[in-house]
Simulated assay, not measured.
Amino acid sequence: MMRKVMLVDDEYMLLRGLKLLVDWKSLGLEIINTEQNPKLALKYLHDNPVDILISDMNMPELSGPDFVAAAKAIRPEMELIVISGYSDFDYVRAGLQQNAVNYLRKPIDTDELLETLHGALDCKSNSSNTRLHR
């Protein structure tokens, strides 16, 4: 079964780059949606389950911290990976508060992304029983 991934970033080039950065299929992952507007991304999440959300933390329509909090409220079981060009600790903290698997700095390092995706997949495979006991 392929795990579903959604990418959210207001920069189109970054969305395109992320798609090409790793071989998603070989990881058992499928990018089912890319969204440049976080508000549209939330609408999509309401109607569609997503296993892993990779989101930028600096978007004009809605702040990253507000977006990831809203996204996790809709899909609490979803793994979260946050991206930011800013080494701004508020963004890191907001990601961590939403149990982000990792925080990636732009420009994104392929190895770091791969490692993070493996971490997210490990969380997904363990979460069916461990999450309930937190």
Rank of each mutant, 00 (worst) to 15 (best):
R3T: 09
R3V: 08
K4D: 08
V5R: 01
M6Y: 05
M6K: 03
L7M: 06
D10L: 00
D10R: 02
D10C: 01
E11W: 03
M13D: 13
M13F: 14
L14T: 08
L14Q: 06
L14A: 08
L18I: 12
L18A: 06
K19V: 07
L21R: 09
W24D: 01
K25Y: 13
K25L: 13
S26E: 10
G28L: 09
I31R: 12
I31D: 12
T34V: 06
E35M: 04
E35Q: 10
Q36S: 12
N37Y: 08
N37C: 07
L40T: 05
K43Q: 15
Y44L: 11
Y44T: 10
Y44H: 12
Y44K: 09
Y44N: 10
Y44C: 10
L45D: 01
L45G: 01
H46R: 15
D47E: 13
N48V: 06
P49G: 11
L53F: 08
L53G: 06
S55W: 04
D56F: 01
D56N: 02
D56T: 02
D56V: 03
M57A: 02
S63H: 07
G64V: 04
F67D: 03
F67W: 03
F67P: 02
V68P: 02
V68E: 00
A70W: 04
A70Q: 11
A70T: 06
A71E: 01
A73F: 09
A73Y: 07
I74T: 04
E77W: 11
E77S: 14
L80T: 00
L80Q: 00
V82I: 14
Y86A: 11
S87T: 14
F89R: 08
D90E: 12
Y91S: 07
V92T: 09
R93F: 10
A94V: 03
Q98I: 00
Q98T: 02
A100Y: 06
V101S: 04
V101I: 15
N102W: 02
N102D: 12
Y103I: 05
K106W: 05
K106T: 03
P107F: 01
P107M: 00
I108F: 04
L114D: 03
E115P: 08
L117R: 00
H118R: 15
G119I: 02
A120K: 04
C123Y: 15
C123A: 15
S125Y: 11
S125N: 14
N126V: 10
H133M: 14
R134T: 14
